[in-house]
């Protein structure tokens, strides 16, 4: 089943075209990485899909409009935000419980504390249950935010630059956590990142966006110099960091030179 269908999506902000005629879809259970340069429209794409920006075209989430999908509790969202107000009076436990609240009415389930603990243990944050959320580090806040998103039991989760404010070691853990959630809970993930090297190891498909969609498919685009030139411009030089997941991956620049 298609978890997300985007057809001919165009977004204009103050008369300027930010995203032009973009179409793609995501099958249920997939992890899609949306990559592209800063200012290429990645965040606007997510925000349009979630109904925060006006657009022309069509968006369907599990066959529903964004508004219907949100009302049905199908969506989860982790915005691009490095840190929240450190003094905001909300503890980790309460924030995760917020994630369980849907629609207009309805109380939390009677076993909400146990449920919160189980989600926190999934992200290895159960010891921080009574800690103020704003006092956590960036990586810890991201983990708790994932627990909050999961507490809503969404079918599709949108993550906007989820590695913002996290150090390199924590980033690796974070992506492993996302893969675990995808495999164990079957949650479809749409993730925005400017770091195409890192996320390519963790995603099933890539969408390369710079106003228009330059590529959508298997995550191989990072080794294609011509594609890099189109997405990032001719001045860019990509240095790829290799890891155990790399296959036929080279250090490339967009002038077409490829170095092994």
């Amino acid at each position: 089943m298609k978890a997300l269908e985007v057809k001919n999506l165009t977004v204009k902000i103050a008369g300027k075209v930010i995203i032009e005629n973009v179409s793609f879809d995501v099958v249920e259970g997939e992890i899609l990485g949306i990559v592209g340069p800063n200012g290429g429209g990645k965040t606007s794409l997510i925000r349009a899909i979630l109904g925060f920006l006006d657009y022309t075209g069509e968006v369907r989430i599990f066959g529903f409009t964004p508004s219907e999908a949100k009302k049905k509790g199908l969506t989860g969202y982790l915005p691009q935000k490095s840190l929240y107000d450190p003094d905001f009076p909300v503890k980790v436990r309460d924030l995760v419980a917020f994630g369980m609240m849907k629609s207009w009415f309805g109380k939390l389930p009677s076993n909400w504390k146990e449920k919160v603990r189980s989600y926190l243990s999934m992200v290895n944050m159960e010891k921080w249950e009574n800690y103020p959320f704003g006092k956590l580090s960036g990586g810890q806040q991201q983990r708790v935010s994932i627990a909050r998103v999961l507490a809503g039991e969404p079918k599709i989760v949108f993550l906007d630059e989820p590695n913002t404010g996290i150090d390199v070691v924590a980033q690796e853990d974070f992506y492993q956590l996302l893969m675990k959630i995808n495999k164990e809970l079957g949650v479809t993930i749409v993730m925005v990142s400017h770091d195409i090297g890192v996320i390519s190891s963790y995603i099933h498909k890539t969408a390369c966006l710079n106003r228009v969609l330059h590529y959508h498919g298997e995550p191989v685009c990072i080794t294609d110099p011509e594609l890099l030139r189109r997405v990032y411009g001719s001045g860019a030089d990509m240095i790829l960091i290799h890891d155990e997941n790399c296959e036929n991956c080279g250090s490339v620049n967009v002038k077409g030179e490829e170095r092994k």
Binding site: L50, K70, G73, Y77, F98, K102, W104, L108, R148
Partner: peptide
């Protein structure tokens, strides 16, 4: 009283609350 916790969620981050279908 009817919307107490939802109002707090929205005060924390309105967009996150909106994605959960909260009005």
């Amino acid at each position: 009283a009817l919307f107490f916790k939802r109002m707090f969620f929205a005060a924390f981050d309105e967009e996150l609350a909106d994605v959960n279908g909260i009005p």
